[in-house]
Nucleic acid binder design. Structure first.
Length: 842
DNA sequence: CCTGTTAATTTTTTT
DNA sequence: AATTAACAGG
């Protein structure tokens, strides 16, 4: 399947086409940067020689091996600015790919501040977002309708389960999770069911998988759905099958920039090769030491083999670190050095030595959390040099560790924000509403229909649904079509009335959508109301007050999120209109937006974006996994849970490759810190319902002694270092403790610890969901929000980022109100109780 | 057809 | 520990 990628010939001519000759400036510089007095160019002023060489590079594919904190984002943005402003490249000929939406947003913003609104015409985004954009335009060539929907992992599991039933494979013999993983990795290698079946050969297990895979893919196709991996793989197939389409994008994207190249999987690698093949203007930035996504198919070989893949390429190393102190950098270097699979780089810095790394050996997970909270409070209240919360990041290997930290921070009154975990859009109530939107915009989406036909309860249960399924299979029509014709089928007579109500609900909502008379936010509100979802929760208020309240709040939140989304979209469009020259290629944005288009755009955003992507201005300590911290930096970093079996994880202990990946993860964690680094490990830890006894992580022990200041015990030796009893590893099996005589003494030790008067940290009771608690802690500390009843049209308010604005409109709903506010920069909408606004007295 | 109960399973990391 | 799936009874 790589064949066609290879057949794309790699010409070495980087010669710019006519359209690229710069206005006035330098055709000289393209052969030799020295001929041009680059030192005087303000665009290059803040770059070191290597960075400058990278920005100016021309004529061959370029690999930049950029160590952590070496200014790679700056190099990419300056490169884009350089291309546009000095080389006269049309921004719409630039495709810049990042890995997270957050990184993409940051890049867009930085580029805009350099070159202004023209940046809008460049394509900047994640692989998934960019390829999706391409797929939407050409999906009919692959047999998908333009309005296909994207399944998330949960929906995916639903479909898989059915596929397994069809293939008569019990999910007991083969866990769904594994099937999901297998299919995903096959797709990332561009292997689709047919080929998978061929490769299976006589392997019975593989044959079964192939069958499941086949059913799964069929189901997706029938429902006009793609999963995440399809987005990449189908784009590859599109390019392979439709040379004219490929050729169009090759021509269009004369300049291709890829960030975090070390995290590309095979499909992404092929995409890069295909797109760059014609003009060869490939600009790739990566750091093999920061490759941490092999579990989702990232292939480290892509960056290690770059020289072979692009024989005439140039390699530039960025080794000067601008982020961390000497101490932190030395620690990170000494850890990563122990990996064998790497391009050798040694980061250096001119920065000062800085504080030693603080290592704390905690008693248990609560003690650990309390220690972190105390340290944070100390840092934030230091007279004269008080830090603000957003300069602090708390990082951990697995999301499960966030819980203890949460309660400790709460007890200390520290505002925090948790990233990851449950996405807002993943909540049941939200997904239900999204399923309504999907069915409304795409009536053949059976998956959406099945999700909502009985949500809220309409008395259409499994029996009826089974009947519907049978008829649909017989008639070869989507479920919704069968529902519509329910009267024609006698077997449905029992449920026909209920089905008709449902069909009318959807048809009515479709009509409202196509009439296009109300704003999108209100449309979403109408969906929540008419569907009965809201009412269902209101009815539950007496029975489950806590849950129902959150759900109602979430639905309201979704309404205002939809409003904000619309206004942001319209603002963008407005800006584009002011630059007619940008419009040529933006065909999808030149028309006035209809309600249906907004709905589709919204569904798309919800599918690809996580909460992490929203830039957050509030001043709170960040809690996140190391994975999500990549690309970020904090003045002070706490790395918690530095225990063997947790980090590195238990399942990676016996594979050298996996240990190396974990070590890279450690490297990423350490290099997030600018000035101060705290590392904590617990002697014993209650996790997943079991107490385990843990050694200090090897990564903490690999840091040279002279860089570390130890508190509460040594990093070396076992967990009971006082009497140096050697216990090889912890045990997570409770029956071990019960039955194994050899284990009983562990419990004695454990109780001795607590009986010895060392009280474990206070364990706060569980209160509500993580989401809720985050919100509470913020509102308690910040007093955000306004009471709309005390506001009037014309009042002035201040927003931290947007400045002062005037209230243009107040739209009350469900005890709150949406404020429409005109700022200098444009009109924005806020939910009054949630807004970060303060009133300005005039 | 729905509800409340038990039993079982889960834990890497994310677009 | 906590979420989720299966299951029996109303």
């Amino acid at each position: 399947m790589t064949k066609s990628a290879d057949s794309g010939q790699l010409k070495a001519d980087g010669a710019p086409g006519g359209r690229e000759s710069a206005p006035g400036l330098l055709s000289v510089a393209k052969t030799a940067g020295e001929l041009y007095d680059s030192a005087a160019d303000p665009l290059l002023a803040n770059l070191n020689p290597e960075q400058r060489r990278a920005v100016l590079h021309e004529g061959s594919p370029l690999l930049i091996l950029a160590g952590a904190g070496s200014g790679k984002t700056r190099v990419i943005t300056q490169r884009i600015a350089w291309l546009v402003q000095r080389r006269g490249v049309d921004p719409e000929r630039i495709l810049a790919i990042t890995f997270t939406n957050k990184a993409a947003n940051e890049m867009k913003e930085r580029v805009s501040s350099q070159i202004g609104l023209a940046a809008r015409a460049a394509w900047v985004g994640t692989f998934h977002a960019m390829m999706l954009r391409i797929l939407r335009r050409h999906s009919h060539l692959l047999g998908y309708d333009r309005s296909f929907s994207i399944l998330d992992t949960v929906d995916q599991r639903r479909v898989l389960k059915e596929a397994m039933e069809k293939a008569k494979v019990s999910d007991k013999t083969v866990p769904i999770r594994q099937v999901q993983q297998q299919i995903s990795s096959a797709k990332n290698k561009l292997i689709y069911p047919e080929e998978y079946a061929k490769e299976a050969g006589k392997d019975l297990q593989k044959q079964q998988l192939a069958e499941i895979y086949n059913y799964y893919q069929e189901e997706l196709r029938q429902n006009n759905c793609l999963d995440f991996d399809d987005i990449l793989a189908l784009t590859v197939f599109l390019f392979e099958q439709q040379p004219q389409v490929l050729s169009y994008y090759q021509e269009r994207f004369r300049h291709l920039l890829v960030d975090e190249y070390q995290d590309t999987n095979h499909a992404q690698y092929v995409l890069v090769r295909l797109l760059a093949a014609k003009h060869n203007n490939l600009f790739v930035v990566g750091d093999d030491d920061q490759s941490i996504y092999s579990f989702r198919g990232a292939n480290l070989m892509n960056i290690l083999d770059f020289r072979q893949d692009f024989p005439n390429c140039t390699v530039i190393r960025l080794e000067q670190n601008y982020r961390s102190t000497r101490t932190i950098l030395a620690a990170a270097n000494s850890v990563i050095c122990l990996n064998e699979q790497r391009n050798h780089k040694t980061l250096w810095t001119e920065a000062e030595e800085g504080d030693k790394i603080n290592f704390y050996r905690a008693l248990d997970q609560n003690d650990e959390a309390v220690y972190v909270a105390n340290q944070i409070r100390r840092l934030m209240s230091k007279s004269g040099a008080a830090m603000s919360g957003n300069e602090i990041g708390v990082l951990y290997r697995v999301n499960a560790l966030a819980r203890n930290l949460e309660s400790a921070l709460q007890d200390h009154g520290i505002a925090y924000r948790i990233y990851g975990g449950m996405r807002f859009y993943d909540r049941k109530e939200i997904k239900d509403i999204m399923a309504y939107l999907r069915l409304i915009t795409e009536p053949s989406d059976d998956l959406a229909l099945r999700r909502i036909i009985n949500s809220p309860r309409r008395g259409i249960g499994a029996t009826t649904l089974e009947l519907l399924n049978q008829i649909a299979a017989r008639e070869q029509q989507p479920l919704f079509e069968i529902c519509r014709r329910a009267e024609e089928f006698p077997e449905l007579s029992f449920a026909a009335g209920k089905i008709r109500l449902f069909v009318h609900l959807i048809l009515d909502l479709q009509q409202v959508l196509s009439r296009d008379e109300i704003e999108f936010g209100f449309y979403v509100k109408q969906v929540t109301d008419d569907s009965g979802l809201k009412q269902e929760q209101t009815a539950l208020l007496d029975k489950l007050p806590l849950e129902a309240t959150t759900r109602i709040q979430n639905m309201d939140e979704l309404v205002s999120d939809a409003m904000e989304f619309e206004s942001r979209l319209t603002d963008e469009l407005e800006e584009l209109r002011q630059y007619p020259e940008l419009q040529a290629e933006q065909e999808d944005l030149t028309m006035p937006l209809t309600l249906a288009q907004i709905a589709e755009a919204y569904l798309e955003r919800v599918a690809l974006y996580s909460d992490l992507d929203q830039a957050d201005e509030s001043d709170a300590v960040s809690l996140m996994t190391i994975h999500s911290a990549k690309g970020l930096e904090f003045d002070t970093v706490f790395l918690v849970g530095a225990n063997e079996g947790l980090f590195p994880g238990e399942q990676s202990l016996y594979s050298r490759e996996e240990i190396e990946e974990e070590r890279r993860l450690a490297y990423v964690a350490l290099t997030r810190a600018k000035r101060r680094l705290f590392i904590t490990a617990a002697r014993q830890r209650l996790l997943y319902g079991q107490t385990m006894y843990q050694k200090v992580s090897r990564f903490a022990r690999e840091i040279p002694d002279d860089l570390v200041e130890e508190v509460g015990g040594s990093r070396h030796g076992d967990q009971f270092d006082a009497d140096s009893v050697s216990i090889a590893t912890w045990s997570r099996r409770s029956e071990d403790a019960r039955y194994g005589a050899g284990y009983s003494f562990r419990r004695d030790f454990a109780s001795a610890d607590t009986a010895g008067g060392i009280a474990p940290g206070t364990s706060a009771g569980r209160r509500g969901t993580a989401f809720e608690r985050t919100k509470n802690s913020l509102s308690r500390d910040e007093k955000r929000g306004l009471d709309y009843q005390q506001l009037a049209v014309g009042d002035l308010v201040r927003h931290e980022r947007l400045g002062i604005g005037a209230i243009e409109k107040i739209v009350p709903f469900s005890g709150d109100a949406i404020l429409v506010i005109r700022f200098k920069s444009g009109t924005k909408r806020f939910k009054a109780s949630m807004s970060l606004l303060t009133r300005v007295e005039d």
